[in-house]
Amino acid sequence: MRHLLSTRDLDQESAVRLLDVAEDMADTQQREVKKLPTLRGKTVVNLFFEDSTRTRISFEAASKRLSADVINFSAKGSSVSKGESLKDTAQTLQAMGADAVVIRHPASGAPQTLATSGWIDAGILNAGDGTHEHPTQALLDAFTIRKRVHGIASRGRNLDGLSVTIVGDILHSRVARSNVWLLTTLGATVTLVAPPTLVPVDTRAWPVTISYDLDEALAAGPDVVMMLRIQGERMRDAFFPNSREYSRRWGLDDGRLHRLDPTTIVMHPGPMNRGLEISAAAADSPMSTVREQVTNGVSVRMAALYLLLSGDREN
């Protein structure tokens, strides 16, 4: 693997391989000594043009657990605020000898540009670009689902026969897009539920069913319900009358939680707006995987870094 830019161009074999490597990484994270010497001498740059807590520290933890050196770069307080272009930033990182660049950028396609421009030789990991993709989040979601469903026998398995319902702000969500591609590649069927204003205009090419009614979608008994964050910072228009109405119609509140089959997996990529898209009871119930997702995120990112950086990178 040279770069990890999107889940759309990931085939099932490489996705399952990455999840299997993540299992091995997860095993090492149970030990007292969590550090592996695998990427000693490699330099990973976290290039964040957008705010992030868990993705950045997750990548940082993953890099450090593999003994890579980590350089954190956030656009605030850097030369970017002085008007430096992405190209110049990339060339600076190249001159410093970065082996991998983890990039989060508000513009969709920025990681792709970095990977194909020839400005920099490093492996590029997309940590979220605009409203395009967030591949490691989808991979950790798939890992979490697979682990919950198949337990210790999860190595080598895909997600055949599982139904996943993704609820909320589909329009602005790169997490939803990455999950749509990855989960269907792995054999799951995906239903999207959202207010009509928060569904992208053209979804004909998406391998999904779209519904506007959460109760109807939950009555179908999905194996997984994934709640998305309402992204206030990307909303410049009124997409729904007010947050109380949103949470009444599209939020996973206590009533809906109790109507779910107790084996249903409830997911949220974080950060959560408790009481808006997900109730506190739902977020903290045993059905919820919110904290597992964070733990698994480190293992999945270790696997991605390992697959990108460990082998012979000439070809």
Binding site: D27, R155, G311, D312
Partner: peptide, 11 residues
Amino acid sequence: LAKHPTRTPAP
């Protein structure tokens, strides 16, 4: 590791 194509680890 750097001299071969990426190896898949085993459990």
